[in-house]
Amino acid sequence: MSDDTWLLAAAGTHLKGAVAAARAAGGRVTVLAVGPRELADAAAAAAPDEVRWLETADDQPAEAWAAALAAEVAAAAPHVVLAPSDPASRTLLAAAAVPLGAALLTRVLTVRSQDDALVVDRSSLGGAVVETLTVQGPLAAVLEDADDAPPAAAPATVAPLAPAGAPVPMQVKREPLPGAAAGIRDAARVVSVGRGLRSKDDLALLDGLLAALGAELACSMPVADDLGWVPKERYVGRSGQHIAPRLYLALGISGMPQHLEGVRDAKVVAAVNNDPAAPIFRTADYGVVGDLYEVVPALVAALAE
C-alpha cells in the first residue's frame, strides 16, 4: 500500500472540492477520469498531480469499466480512493474497494492520516451531525459533494489509460429531461414556497416579491405533487430540480433533507418560517422567524427602500 490518493471520477461536477479532499488525505493525487475529453479537462483543471483518462464511447456508461478499472486501482495500491457522489463514480469506487481490501464509507467530508490510521469525518443523519470514524488499512470513500473551491495549483497533464481488462456490455441513451428547461435552473434568484402557503390563490401574494427580486418561482415537492399549485418541473429537491442560484429564499418550507439536497449548491439560502424550531433554521444562512403572510409584504417594502 502506498501513501497516495486516487479519485475516481465519471462526472464533471464537484471535482475541485474532491481534489481538495484528496490532497488532505495525503500523498500523490491521481484522478482517474472515465468519460469524454471534457471530463478529463475538468479533472485536470482541479489541479491533481496527474490525470489518467479512459475515454468511453458515447453510448457507453462509465460503469461498464468498473471491474477493469478496479484491477488497475488495486495494482497501484493507493491507501485512499475517493469518488464524488454521482451514481457512476460511486459504482467505480465500490468495485475498486473489493480487490483493494478497503473499507467502504460514504458521505465523507474529510480524510486525514493520523499515526498509522485514517481519521474520517462523515456527514450523518442527513447532515444534522458529523461522525468521526477511525479506519485501519485502505479506505474507499464516497465524498459528500462540497462547494467547489478554486484550485491551488496549475492544471495537471492528462495521460490516457488503457486498462488490461475489457468493459462489460452496457449501453446508455441520454435525452434532455422533460421540463428541464424551466426557468429556475438558470435563475440567479429563486423564491420557493412550501406547505406554509395556505391556498393556491395565495400564490398571488408572491408576485410583488418575485418582481422586486427578479426571481423565479419554485416550491417544495408537496406543493407541486400533492397540491398541484405549481408545475411539477418547478419543485426542488432530491427527486426534483437541483439548482444553484445565488439566492434561494424558502417561504414556509420546513427544510427536510430531501428538499435541501436540491439547493446544496446555492450561494445563499434564506428562509422565512413561523416555527423557530423548523429544521431549515439549522441549515440556512439567514432566517426570519415570522408569518410569511406578514413577512413577504414587509420584504417587498424593504427592497423598495
Partner: peptide
C-alpha cells in the same frame, strides 16, 4: 476495520436568525 468515535454538530456557520416585528426582520 472501522471504529466509531462519536458525533458532533457540524461546525458550519450557524444560521443568522432574525426575530421580531416583520418590518424590522424584513
Amino acid at each position: 476495520a472501522v471504529v466509531a468515535g462519536g458525533t458532533r454538530l457540524p461546525e458550519q456557520a450557524r444560521t443568522r436568525v432574525f426575530e421580531g416585528e416583520p418590518e424590522q426582520t424584513a
